[in-house]
């Protein structure tokens, strides 16, 4: 989900507490906690965790001296090293910026069937990732043999183009190397633990401020984080829900991608309508007719969502995109959104 969807969901969660709504009317900012909680998991990841991660293998190509083979060799050697040492390695691929709005794209691929790392140069793209006309130049591909078994993973090319490039965790598990895409994302920050922690912090803050609604504040904070975490479960890649008890990210419900316009619009629209409805419901006297409101005004949102799902499942059946590819697509969309914003 997009940041704004998570954020507004968090705000909507807060409005389900009548005492919070009443306090808001009296001048309190308690409902803002919902918004903060809603965006907190991604804030932690994209503003902190991402930068603290130390890469072991850094790919930082020069746009005018792009050597695909050398990059492929480096990647393959890194994977081999994990096989040999059984020690986790972080592979980071930097982007190539050509100007305020131009980026030189390249792609890498982990070919698990043939045991190879592939690298190829792409076109110049703008920040919207739209290729510039005639910008694709002929350049030799890089191909390097990997000598250790790889977990069958996303089989297509991963593009590296705008803002910050992707990183991969290469880890020895079950006698083979597993490749984890953007390993710093959706770990501890997207867990029940984080919901509990943020809720406790909110409650403590309000208790310290001598605010009578400290329990409500704690609940709003916790539920807002939970809402974010649960919304992320709708995608292809879930999160590490039970951190620190578990170390891997779960698979999501595979319903939507983070960047899909209609589901995001549905969530934002529905959340806004919920907020307005709750504000009205907890004020005296309520002015909205629930039947007209939900039966009429809200109707376009679920209809749009149904249209989206019908189209999506038809497309999925035709494309048969592997789960790992979908998960990666999910992460790409989310990463690019926060870079682009």
């Amino acid at each position: 989900m997009k940041g704004i969807s998570h954020f507004i969901t968090g705000v909507a969660v807060g409005t389900f507490f009548p005492d919070a709504v009443h306090a808001a009317v009296a001048g309190s900012f308690i409902l803002v906690l919902g918004g903060i909680g809603g965006l907190l998991p991604d804030t932690l990841d994209f503003k902190f965790a991402r930068f603290i991660e130390e890469p072991d293998i850094l790919i930082d190509p020069h746009p005018e001296q792009f050597e695909a083979q050398k990059i492929a060799d480096e990647i393959a050697a890194g994977i081999d090293r994990v096989g040999a040492t059984h020690k986790k390695q972080i592979l980071k691929c930097n982007t190539m910026r050509l100007g305020p709005d131009w980026w030189q794209q390249y792609s890498i691929k982990f070919d698990t069937q043939n045991g190879e790392a592939l690298v190829q140069l792409g076109p110049i793209v703008n920040t919207s990732q739209i290729p510039l006309p005639e910008s694709l130049r002929v350049s030799p591909k890089g191909r390097a043999k990997i000598h250790v078994p790889l977990l069958p993973t996303y089989g297509d090319f991963v593009t590296v183009d705008i803002f910050s490039g992707p990183s991969f965790a290469l880890e020895w598990r079950n006698d083979r190397v597993e490749i984890d895409f953007i390993p710093w994302h959706r770990q501890y920050s997207h867990s029940f633990f984080m919901a509990l922690l943020f809720g406790t912090l909110c409650g403590a803050l309000f208790f310290w401020m001598d605010h009578p609604l400290y329990v409500t504040a704690g609940l709003i904070g916790a539920f807002a984080v939970m809402a974010h975490v649960l919304e992320d479960q709708l995608g292809y890649l879930g999160s590490n829900l039970l951190w620190p008890l578990t170390k891997v990210r779960s698979t999501g419900m595979k319903l939507i991608h983070a960047g899909d316009a209609i589901p995001n619009f549905f969530v934002v629209g529905t959340s806004c309508m919920l907020i307005i409805f709750n504000l009205d419901r907890f004020s005296s006297p309520p002015s909205l007719d629930p039947l007209l409101y939900w039966g009429g005004l809200w109707l376009p949102f679920p209809l749009a969502l149904i249209y989206f799902f019908v189209r999506k499942f038809r497309a999925d059946v035709l494309k048969r995109i592997p789960l790992l590819a979908q998960q990666e697509g999910d992460l790409v969309a989310e990463t690019q959104e926060v870079m682009d914003a």
Binding site: H62, E64, R97, L98, G99, P100, S135
Partner: peptide
């Protein structure tokens, strides 16, 4: 268009890459 044609903006005099401000 080639990759050497940088978008308008500042480039490094040493390595020639875009450095912006």
């Amino acid at each position: 268009m080639t990759v050497s044609t940088h978008q308008v903006g500042a480039t490094c005099p040493s390595c020639g890459r875009f450095v912006g401000p």
